[in-house]
């Protein structure tokens, strides 16, 4: 599957980007309507629908914490993964679980070009004027994680903030917006 990045370096940009604004607290009935029990069909859910018997289904679960370590109950998380075999785009809000978890069921991505497998998360919430991008790596991929160029570009003391820990039945991935354990966010 050849990929061609067609960027014409000689042309200058002509249009100014439309500014980003916060998703606000009231996205639930529009963007995650079925999860929040509103009468509007959801196009995007938190479970992959591709059925591939050779694939390894996984659950990624976590909470998002603000700068005072309180779980955030009105965030929306989107998951995007593409390893060239399986692609999945998912979405879930933290407002319906009693403990404000987000949860995704997907297929574990494969390694691309010897890099460690990962999925991308996009974080939206009231109080974020621009969304934040992070990556979820997996704790049971020690060999690939150790040689991954992105992980190795992150200061060692912060690397663990984006490695999901394998627990009984799921990978736990908590997101800290600020503080000592602040999650690594990427400019994408």
């Amino acid at each position: 599957m050849p990929l061609h990045l067609k960027i014409d370096k000689t042309m200058n940009t002509t249009k100014t980007q439309t500014p980003s604004q916060t998703v606000g607290p009231y996205f639930g009935y529009g963007l995650t309507s079925e999860q929040y029990l509103y009468d509007f069909k959801s196009l995007i859910t938190n479970k992959i629908t591709i059925l591939d018997s050779n694939s390894d289904y996984i659950t990624i679960k976590g909470k998002i914490f603000d700068g005072e370590n309180n779980p955030i109950s009105d965030a929306m998380i989107e998951l995007w993964q593409n390893d060239g075999h399986n692609r999945f785009f998912g979405r879930f809000g933290t407002g319906t679980d009693a403990e404000n978890h987000f949860v995704f069921q997907t297929i574990k991505p494969k390694s691309v070009e010897n890099q460690a497998p990962f999925v991308t998360l996009i974080v939206f919430m009231r109080g974020q004027l621009i969304h934040s991008y992070t990556r979820v790596y997996f704790s049971d991929e020690e060999v690939l994680n150790a040689q991954d160029t992105v992980l190795n570009a992150i200061p060692a003391e912060r690397r663990n903030t984006i490695i999901a820990q394998k627990k009984a039945g799921c990978y736990e991935f908590n997101i800290y917006m600020q503080g000592e354990n602040e999650t690594v966010f990427f400019a994408v």
Partner: peptide
């Protein structure tokens, strides 16, 4: 104030 990332974003 409590929700904006405080550390610089990592270029990817």
């Amino acid at each position: 104030i409590l929700r904006a990332p405080s550390k610089p974003l990592l270029l990817l």
